[in-house]
Nucleic acid binder design. Structure first.
Lengths: 242, 242
DNA sequence: GATCGTCAGATTGTCAGACAATGAGCCGAA
DNA sequence: TTCGGCTCATTGTCTGACAATCTGACGATC
């Protein structure tokens, strides 16, 4: 991209310094990592697929160190695994991983729900607005990718109620891994429309101040989600088990 | 973390496959990252210190890409921050970060405590043994580094009660950041000996099946820890805070 | 005197090429 | 068949290089 010898456009002499105007120039590594993430979430790479450095480098038009660093990001996010001298490959989610992830998200989200009363107004508003956006997108028959994105955003807003950025960051990696598992068993996609009322059953008791009911609803909702993924996964790969 | 599931065949030239005999031949990047971590935890690098790539490379006898990758690990762990074209520098913990971290660890550890009954026997035994090891180390007047390590290991074993490796991994990064904050205000070290009975007040009700009491004890313990760090930090950097 | 443009130095971001170490698969021999 | 060695592919690491950008100081302009 930046191969042309001169981006001669000198756009420097701005007369005013406007606040909070950031030009989103992500680094090459970030762009590569984002592209790989997209490919993973879109199911273009099956579980266990090795991610060869040289092939990716010439395919994406960047150098091998750049690809290597981007792969490190994916590994840190839990979307890929690196084995010494064998390279990086897409994770293969098994039932144990789904169980682990589901337990983690239950802990994170219920912690947020339990702090509904103590959370800030903006955090509570975020929960309301993300659910509204998700519901609206469902009625508007938006694409699966959009629905998925808004759905996850709602659950993230629940975690944010706990008031810790670190917990939200942890939840983001959990959701990334779950999202990848979903992409690899993409038959679950048709279920993605039945969700809004299930989420509303969480928010309604919250607004009413009934934290226990909200937590119970969340618990069943997450248990249902786990069961759906487990079912789809065991159909796809019926070889696992204790 | 879940490494390769046991599909590693016996095709090696070794005649016997001894269990749990690992040759600790970590990669160069891991060694560099570990060395940097040690330096950070030992307080050899003050908050905000820039970590220059070339200087570290020739100081450690490795190449710049290797250092660069190791710095990426530190950034991913939250121990350093990277600013575009300005490099990586040691994080400077402020009161907001301490608050954030404390809330996160409260969520993670109380989630573990709450699942004491449902946790596996080995997880409960791990809590007992780590506390015993810590107590023994205190009576034996071990070094501060050893005490710190065992202390953290006990709290990690609490998180492990929740039964999710991802949560334990998240807790590890939280503790890493907290540990760094502690190292930077190292006047708190003298308090490190007064802890065993405080932890025993958590375990005792657990063994008795009184989860609420255990959680309450944990809450006060963590609140005390946060107050101690906050106090030390505001002495060191008395410029922050609304 | 203050603000701004410009320049040199330092540092990072990215690239290209290279080499050794390691792992995987193939083929021949006991 | 099973074992041992060979070849190839891939990664881990190094060296060197260049462009983009930040920092700080110097001088010009109002």
């Amino acid at each position: 991209m930046a191969r042309a010898p001169g981006k001669s456009g000198q756009n420097g002499p701005m007369t005013h310094a406007y606040p909070s105007l950031t030009v989103e120039v992500a680094s090459t590594v970030d762009r590569v990592a984002e592209e790989l993430r997209r490919a993973l979430f879109d199911g273009e790479l099956a579980a266990g697929t090795p991610l060869r450095e040289v092939a990716l480098a010439e395919s994406l038009g960047v150098s091998r160190p750049t690809v290597r660093e981007a792969l490190g990001v994916l590994v840190a996010d839990g979307l890929a695994v690196r084995e010494p001298h064998r390279g990086v490959s897409v994770v293969t989610p098994d039932l144990a991983a789904i169980s682990d992830l589901s337990r983690a998200r239950l802990v994170l989200e219920s912690a947020g729900v339990r702090r509904w009363a103590e959370a800030g107004d903006e955090a509570r508003d975020a929960v309301r607005s993300t659910l509204a956006a998700y519901t609206r997108a469902v009625t508007e028959q938006r694409s699966y990718a959009v629905l998925n994105e808004l759905h996850l955003r709602f659950h993230l807003s629940l975690v944010a109620l706990a008031g810790s950025e670190r917990l939200v960051a942890a939840a983001e990696t959990v959701y990334a891994e779950l999202r990848l598992a979903l992409a690899q068993v993409d038959r679950v996609r048709r279920d993605a429309h039945a969700q809004p009322e299930s989420h509303l059953r969480i928010l309604t008791p919250l607004e009413a101040g009934d934290l226990e009911a909200a937590e119970a609803q969340l618990c069943t909702h997450l248990a249902d989600a786990e069961a759906a993924i487990r079912g789809a996964l065991s159909e796809v790969a019926p070889k696992l088990g204790p």
